[in-house]
Simulated assay, not measured.
Amino acid sequence: MLVLSGLFIGVLTAIMVSLNGILSTYIDMYHSALIVHLVGLMTVSIVLLVVREAVGKERHVPLYLYSVGVFGVLMVVLTNICFQSIGVSLTVATGLLGQSALSALIDHNGWLGMPKHRFSVRKIPGLVLVLAGTAIMIIY
């Protein structure tokens, strides 16, 4: 089930990159990022109302973790820039390559407080395939 969820994330990413990019052709990329995040805020607010999740019951959250909002804005703006220049497939492919490489490092080293999942030689072919596929897309 988790693998299917991961595949669904990939599908959603391709749709999101496409729609963000199209939106940014109608309005500038910064206003499109604003719209994306405002609609996201409204969506999660409705979900919280529906599931009746209490606000403020979380324990103390380190301040640096709130920087994730900055990463979200950067992702939207950068995907809009890439979309306009290199299209959806190469934007998603290069993003996947970056995600794969950094996530392997994060897992292996336990960075950001994550549990360590040691990198094994068996994972190398997967990373090589992602790299090769991305390289082929860039060349052709």
Rank of each mutant, 00 (worst) to 15 (best):
M1L: 12
H117R: 08
I138Y: 15
D28M: 08
L12I: 08
I86T: 00
F119D: 04
L96I: 07
H117A: 08
H60E: 15
I22V: 13
V77M: 02
A54I: 12
V44W: 12
G113R: 10
G95R: 01
M29E: 06
H37D: 00
I106W: 01
V76Y: 00
K116M: 03
G113E: 07
L41V: 12
T25Q: 11
N109G: 15
Y64N: 06
I22A: 07
Q84P: 13
S103R: 01
L112V: 05
T134L: 03
I139C: 07
N20M: 00
S67T: 09
L19M: 08
H108M: 06
M137K: 05
V130Q: 02
I136K: 02
M75A: 14
V17P: 05
A33D: 02
V128I: 14
A93H: 01
M16V: 08
L105P: 09
L23W: 10
V121H: 11
S85C: 14
G6A: 13
I139W: 09
I106A: 02
V77R: 00
L34R: 04
V39R: 03
K57D: 12
H108Q: 14
K57T: 09
P125T: 04
T91Q: 00
A135L: 15
V68W: 00
H60P: 13
V51H: 13
T79Y: 01
L23F: 14
Y66Q: 06
L2G: 15
I139V: 15
H31D: 07
F71Y: 14
L49G: 12
K116T: 05
A93G: 03
V128Q: 02
R59M: 12
H108G: 14
I138P: 11
G21P: 05
P125A: 09
V36S: 00
K123Y: 09
M75G: 07
G133N: 04
E58L: 14
Q84H: 15
L38F: 15
I9M: 08
N109P: 13
V11A: 02
F119R: 00
V11E: 00
L127F: 06
I139H: 11
Y26S: 14
F8M: 10
W111C: 10
V88P: 01
I35W: 00
V70G: 01
A101N: 07
M137V: 05
R52L: 03
V88D: 00
V76I: 12
A132N: 13
M114S: 12
Q99V: 12
I46F: 15
L49T: 12
N20A: 06
S24P: 01
V128C: 06
